[in-house]
Simulated scan of single mutants.
Amino acid sequence: MVTSLSSEQLIQLSEKTHFSSNEVRSRHESFLKDFPDGVISRKEFHDTYRQAFPGCQQNDVQRYAEYMFNAYDIDCDGEVDFVDYIRTLSVTERGTMDEKLKWAFSMYDINGDGQVSLKEATEFLTSVHRLRGNGDRESAERAARRIFRDLDINGDGLLSQSEFVVGAKNAPIVRDLLEGGGV
């Protein structure tokens, strides 16, 4: 839990992110206003998503929020502290294409084993489609199959992070699908 940042910590976070020390300090102050304990609990994270998607089925919101929580919880300690938060914002707001695709991979890799199965891709895309109100499991499954058709280079039925990143960069239609699916 980080409730105050030393000058050294500001410099370190600035070096590890795409933010200046002043931007890190400002984001930290805002973070603490919203989360005075210095962490976002799983429940608080889920509550934020429930408020953002009030018209959606709560179990759909819960599922999507869990995928997002896991992508934010970089150190896998069960909470999102400021370091997790600022590192994620750095990638999502200012990251390179590779950084953004690696982060997207972490959302698709639901079980965290370093590979994405067709089932995981389908589950993630189903949650996205349901929140957007533009599809069902069948459309998500079709989208997942298209991703696998174009990205599973070695044909093993699993996507490594490398296959995911390289494939998405080299196949604009897949990159567009991924971006439309939650990146």
Rank of each mutant, 00 (worst) to 15 (best):
M1Q: 15
T3F: 05
S6K: 10
S6T: 15
E8S: 11
Q9C: 14
L10C: 11
S14M: 12
E15P: 07
K16Q: 15
T17V: 13
T17Y: 15
F19W: 10
F19M: 15
F19S: 15
F19R: 12
S20P: 15
S20G: 15
S20T: 14
S20N: 13
S20Y: 10
S21V: 13
N22V: 09
R25C: 14
R27P: 10
E29R: 13
S30Q: 13
K33F: 08
K33N: 12
D34T: 08
D34M: 11
P36A: 14
G38D: 14
V39N: 13
I40P: 14
K43G: 14
E44Q: 15
H46G: 09
D47N: 14
T48V: 15
T48G: 15
R50T: 05
Q51K: 10
P54A: 10
Q57D: 10
Q58D: 14
N59P: 05
D60F: 02
V61R: 09
V61S: 08
Q62V: 03
Y64K: 13
Y64V: 04
Y64R: 11
Y67M: 13
Y67K: 06
M68N: 05
Y72N: 06
I74Y: 01
D75M: 06
D75F: 05
D77P: 10
G78C: 05
G78T: 07
E79Y: 02
D81R: 00
D81K: 00
Y85Q: 07
I86H: 05
R87I: 07
R87V: 08
L89E: 02
S90R: 02
D98Q: 06
D98F: 00
E99A: 09
E99W: 08
E99R: 06
W103G: 05
A104L: 10
F105A: 14
S106Y: 00
Y108P: 11
Y108W: 04
I110C: 07
D113M: 12
G114R: 04
Q115I: 06
V116T: 02
V116N: 03
L118N: 08
K119Q: 11
E120F: 04
T122Y: 03
F124M: 11
F124T: 05
L125G: 00
T126Y: 04
S127M: 01
V128H: 06
H129D: 02
R130K: 14
L131E: 10
L131S: 08
G133F: 01
G133R: 00
G133W: 00
D136M: 09
R137S: 04
E138N: 12
S139V: 08
S139I: 09
S139Q: 09
S139F: 01
A140H: 06
A140W: 07
E141P: 00
A143I: 00
A143T: 03
R146P: 00
R146W: 01
I147Y: 00
F148A: 10
F148I: 02
D150Y: 00
N154T: 00
G155S: 09
L158F: 11
L159N: 03
S160N: 09
Q161W: 03
Q161A: 01
Q161R: 08
S162M: 04
E163R: 01
E163H: 02
V165Y: 03
A171W: 01
P172F: 04
P172Y: 03
P172E: 05
V174E: 03
V174F: 02
D176E: 12
D176W: 01
L177E: 13
L178W: 06
G180C: 04
